[in-house]
Design a protein around this nucleic acid. Structure first.
Length: 584
RNA sequence: GGUCCGGUAGCUCAGCUGGAUAGAGCACCAGCCUUCUAAGCUGGGGGUCAUUGGUUCGAAUCCAAUCCGGAUCACCA
C-alpha cells in the first residue's frame, strides 16, 4: 500500500491529535487523522486544520461543539503554537522552530529528497515517444515526450526501477509513400542539413499526390509501384530497401536532435521492423493452436463478448497489423527486462487498440497482460482541427523551439548583450525555451486536449515555466549578493511573519505532491504545486525586504528559507525535466 | 447506435479520495522600481461550476438521466 504520509509536520500533528482524542476517549486511527488534516482557506486562520464532521456521528454531537470542546485539550508545545476552534474546524498554527527543523533543515541536508516514499515499487517499463520515421515530428510528439520524461523522472524519484523505451514506426505504408515520391516525383536535391524534416515533407507530398491521382489512369500504376516498394522492404533487398536504410537514418537524426534538446534518453529502442516478421509468425502459431480464428479471410480474435469487437491480426494477404506487432512487443518487454509492470504512454485514440491487445494477450494465456497499462492522454490539435502529417497542417517541433528561442532573446535576453557572454545568452535562451515548452506541455492535465496556438505559447509570463525559472534565478542572485552580508547564524524560531510560515508549510508538502503526481500519472500536479510555491515566495520577497532586515539572525534565517525554496524548486523542476538558469 | 474522455470567469486552466466565502494565468482597470532581478508584487471588475433530479448535516466534487463537444468501433498506424 502506498500511504501518502510524507509530510512530517502533518504526521507529527496527527500524532498529537490522536493523543488528545484518547484523553477524550475518542479512538481514531492515525492514518485517518492524517488524511483528514487539511489546509484552511485563509492562512490567517491557521496552517493546518482538522474538520470534526466525521466525529459528529460517533459522538452524536454537533461538529461545532466537538471542535470547541476538543480544541481546549490542546496546549502549545514543541509542535503546536496555537489552536483555535472555528466553527466545525480545529485550526492549528505550527511553531516555526518545528517547521524549520523537520522541513527546512531536511531540505538543506538533502534528507527531504531521500525519503522512502513507496513500498516495493514494481520494476516498470515506460514506453513513450512512438514517432514514425519518414514523417516530420510535430508539437503533438512533444507533449508525449515531455509527459513521458516527467513520469519517468517522477517514478525514479519515488524509488521505482524504471526502464525507458521508445517504439518508432519505421515500416508501413507511410514509408512506402515517402519513398515512392522520393523515387518517382521528387525533383529537389537532398539538402545538406535537416534531411529528416525534408524527408517528412516528401511523405506529405507523396500522400497528396496519390490522393490526387485517385480515379485517374495513374492510380493503377501508383499501386503497383507502392506494392513493389513494400515487397522489397519485406524481402530486405533491392533498390528501395537500400533507400529505406539510408533515409531512415535521416529521420533518426531528427529524432535524436529532439531527444537531445529535451535531454531524454531511452534505455531501449524497439523498432517496429524488429517485430515485423516475428509477430506474424507468432500470430500464425496461435492460429494453428486454435486460439485465433479465421474470419472473412483474415485471422484474429473475436472479442465481442468483451465488447471490443474483432481484433484482426493477419490481413487476408497474410500481413500483420499494428496490433500484431504490439502483441509480440508486449511479450518481448517482459522477457527482455523481467519487468513487473508495463506502461504505454500513447494518446487516447489508441485506447481501443490497447484494450484489444491486452485482452488478446490474456486469451493467449499470458499472465503479464494484467500488468500492462495504457496511459491515455488527450492529444494536441490546432485551432482548426487535428494535426495531420498527411494534410501537412502540422507545427513542426523545431519550429516551436526556434520561435521560442527567438522570442526569449528578443524580449528578454538581448538587453544583456555586452554585459554577458554571447554563449551565456545562448545557453540561457535554451534553458528558458525548455522551461516554456516543457511546462506548457505538462501543466495541462493529461486527460485534457491541448489546442496549440503559437501566439499564446510565445507569451511566457504568468503561470509558465519561465516564471518558475525566474523565481529561481532571482533567488540565486539574491543569495549570491547577500553572501558577504550574513553575520549571524540562523534560527528558525525567529520567523514570525505569516508569509514566512506559509512558505514553510508549503515546503513541507513537497513529497506528498510528488507522490501524488507519480501515482496518478499527472505531472501537472507538481506543476501546480511549484507554481503555488513561487507565488508565495514572490509575495514574501515583495512584502519583506530581506536585505534591509535589521536583525542579523532574522536576516540570516530569511536567507536560509530563501535557499530552501530554491533547492526545492530546482529539485521539483528537475523532476519535470526542466533546467534552471543561474540568472536570467 | 455501443464504449471511453471532456464541459468551471470573455479566453486558457486549477480545484474532483465530498467540507469554511469556487481559485489562478491571460485580457481589462487602478496602484508599486533613487535598484535584494518589474519575466515580479498589491488591489478591482468578471461565475446559474452544461442541465435536471438523487444521496448527504454539507455537492463543482459522488450517483442517475439529459444536452453539447471530441475520440473510437475489421483488412491504416
Amino acid at each position: 500500500m502506498n500511504i501518502n504520509n510524507h509530510n512530517k509536520v502533518k504526521l507529527q500533528l496527527a500524532g498529537i491529535i490522536q493523543e488528545v482524542f484518547l484523553t477524550a476517549e475518542i479512538e481514531e486511527p492515525l492514518q485517518d487523522i492524517y488524511n483528514s488534516i487539511g489546509f484552511p482557506p485563509d492562512a490567517a486562520l491557521g496552517h493546518y486544520t482538522y474538520p470534526c464532521f466525521n466525529l459528529s456521528k460517533k459522538l452524536r454531537n454537533a461538529p461545532n461543539k466537538i471542535s470547541e470542546q476538543l480544541a481546549k485539550g490542546f496546549t502549545a508545545g514543541e509542535v503546536i503554537d496555537s489552536v483555535q476552534s472555528v466553527g466545525p474546524y480545529i485550526n492549528f498554527k505550527i511553531k516555526s522552530s518545528f517547521l524549520g527543523r523537520v522541513t527546512c533543515d531536511e531540505i538543506e541536508n538533502g534528507q527531504m529528497f531521500e525519503r522512502h516514499l513507496i513500498d516495493a515499487p514494481p520494476k516498470t517499463m515506460i514506453e513513450y515517444s512512438q514517432p514514425n520515421t519518414h514523417k516530420e515530428l510535430h508539437v503533438g510528439h512533444m507533449r508525449n515526450l515531455c509527459l513521458g520524461d516527467a513520469l519517468i523522472k517522477l517514478h525514479r524519484y519515488c524509488g521505482y526501477d524504471i526502464i525507458s523505451a521508445t517504439f518508432p514506426g519505421d515500416v508501413g505504408t507511410h514509408v512506402a509513400k515517402c519513398l515512392w515520391y522520393f523515387r518517382y516525383h521528387n525533383t529537389e536535391k537532398v539538402p545538406v542539413e535537416n534531411k529528416g524534416t525534408w524527408l517528412g515533407s516528401l511523405y506529405t507530398k507523396g500522400h497528396l499526390q496519390l490522393e490526387q491521382d485517385e480515379g485517374t489512369p495513374r492510380e493503377a500504376e501508383n499501386k503497383k509501384q507502392l506494392s513493389e516498394i513494400l515487397t522489397q522492404l519485406e524481402a530486405q533487398k533491392g533498390e528501395f530497401y537500400d533507400l529505406w536504410k539510408s533515409t531512415k537514418e535521416w529521420s533518426v537524426e531528427l529524432m535524436n536532435q529532439v531527444y537531445e534538446w529535451a535531454g531524454v534518453h531511452f534505455d531501449r529502442w524497439y523498432w517496429e521492423s524488429d517485430v515485423d516478421v516475428s509477430s506474424t509468425e507468432l500470430a500464425r502459431k496461435y492460429f494453428e493452436k486454435g486460439v485465433f480464428i479465421e474470419s472473412q479471410g483474415t485471422i484474429g480474435v473475436d472479442l465481442s463478448e468483451y465488447n471490443l469487437g474483432f481484433c484482426m491480426l493477419l490481413k487476408s494477404d497474410g500481413h500483420g497489423l499494428y496490433a500484431t506487432k504490439d502483441i509480440e512487443l508486449a511479450r518481448r518487454k517482459f522477457d527482455d527486462f523481467h519487468i513487473e509492470k508495463s506502461v504505454y504512454i500513447v494518446d487516447k485514440r489508441q485506447a481501443h487498440h490497447f484494450a484489444q491487445v491486452f485482452k488478446v494477450l490474456e486469451i493467449m494465456g499470458y499472465e503479464n497482460a494484467k500488468k500492462c497499462y495504457h496511459l491515455q492522454y488527450d492529444y494536441v490539435e490546432l485551432p482548426d482541427g487535428a494535426m495531420s502529417s498527411r494534410k501537412g497542417n502540422i507545427v513542426p517541433i523545431m519550429k516551436l523551439i526556434d520561435n521560442m528561442h527567438e522570442v526569449v532573446k528578443k524580449d528578454y535576453l538581448n538587453k544583456y548583450i555586452g554585459e554577458w557572454d554571447q554563449s551565456e545568452i545562448d545557453s540561457t535562451a535554451d534553458i528558458i525555451s525548455k522551461g516554456a515548452i516543457k511546462y506548457g506541455m505538462i501543466r495541462i492535465d493529461p486527460s485534457r486536449k491541448i489546442v496549440f496556438d503559437m501566439k499564446e505559447w510565445l507569451k511566457i509570463d504568468g503561470d509558465s515555466g519561465p516564471y518558475l525559472q525566474y523565481t529561481y534565478a532571482r533567488i540565486n542572485s539574491l543569495v549570491k549578493k547577500l553572501a558577504d552580508e550574513i553575520k549571524a547564524g540562523h534560527d528558525w524560531s525567529v520567523l514570525a511573519e505569516e508569509t514566512e510560515l506559509q512558505l514553510m508549510v508549503k515546503l513541507s508538502e513537497f513529497n506528498n505532491q510528488v507522490v501524488q503526481a507519480c501515482n496518478e500519472y499527472k505531472p501537472n500536479v507538481l506543476c501546480n504545486y511549484l507554481y503555488e510555491l513561487c507565488k508565495i515566495f514572490n509575495n514574501f520577497y515583495n512584502v519583506l525586504n530581506i536585505r534591509r532586515t535589521e536583525d542579523e539572525v532574522l536576516k540570516s534565517t530569511r536567507v536560509e528559507l530563501t535557499k530552501c525554496v530554491a533547492i526545492t524548486l530546482k529539485k521539483g523542476l528537475s523532476l519535470l525535466g526542466i533546467p534552471v538558469p543561474e540568472r536570467m
